[in-house]
């Protein structure tokens, strides 16, 4: 964080990310809030770039903007009652309290932890390093995650399968 450029970039990106995230909750229109969510995701991707984690940054765009945001849009469009408005519901107050609690915990943890600054000068090729770690040290968690995702996919297919679809593909 010695580089002034990186510092300026950090603050701009942080402002975009946090501002857009606030907007997601505050904006009335659901599609607007998805768009803001995309902006927030993009800001996070930018933050990864300032940390020279290029692989993670690109994956952030690919997965969060390319897939997660699209899924949310799908969910909104496919839900008949969602309509176009993000209205204040009766859950407004409990949600606010909950959010404040989570934020408080995170702020406490952030200030309480003694962050160790990495000695290394960053990776030459983050993708290779991640690949090595995933298939080496963290092979088991990686496989468990895969199995979990697979079962989720199968479950989703079972859920939406039309009744009486046992016979044949039609």
């Amino acid at each position: 964080m010695e580089d002034t450029g990186a510092v300026v970039a950090f603050w701009i990106l942080a402002a975009i990310t946090v501002g857009a995230a606030l907007g997601v909750a505050a904006v009335r229109n659901l599609i607007h809030s998805v768009v803001l969510l995309i902006v927030s995701f993009a800001g996070v991707a930018g933050l990864y770039i300032t940390l020279s984690a290029d692989f993670i940054a690109v994956v952030q765009i690919l997965i969060y903007i390319g897939a997660i945001a699209i899924l949310i849009i799908f969910a909104i469009v496919l839900t008949p009652r969602a309509g176009r408005l993000n209205q204040e519901g009766f859950m407004f107050l409990p949600a606010l309290v909950l959010a404040a609690l989570v934020a408080g915990t995170m702020i406490f943890v952030a200030f309480d932890t003694s962050w160790a600054i990495s000695e290394r000068e960053g990776f030459e090729d983050t993708a290779t390093a991640i690949g090595d770690l995933l298939l080496g040290k963290y092979a088991l968690p990686f496989e468990i995650a895969s199995v979990l995702l697979l079962s989720a996919i199968i479950g989703a297919i079972l859920l939406v399968r039309p009744e009486g679809a046992e016979e044949g593909p039609e």
Partner: peptide, 21 residues
């Protein structure tokens, strides 16, 4: 970029929400 191939795919993916919008 080291992850150029991924970058190409990721950035092209931004077109999807744009077209939806």
């Amino acid at each position: 970029l080291n992850v150029g191939v991924l970058f190409v795919i990721a950035v092209a993916g931004i077109m999807t929400p744009a077209i939806f919008i």
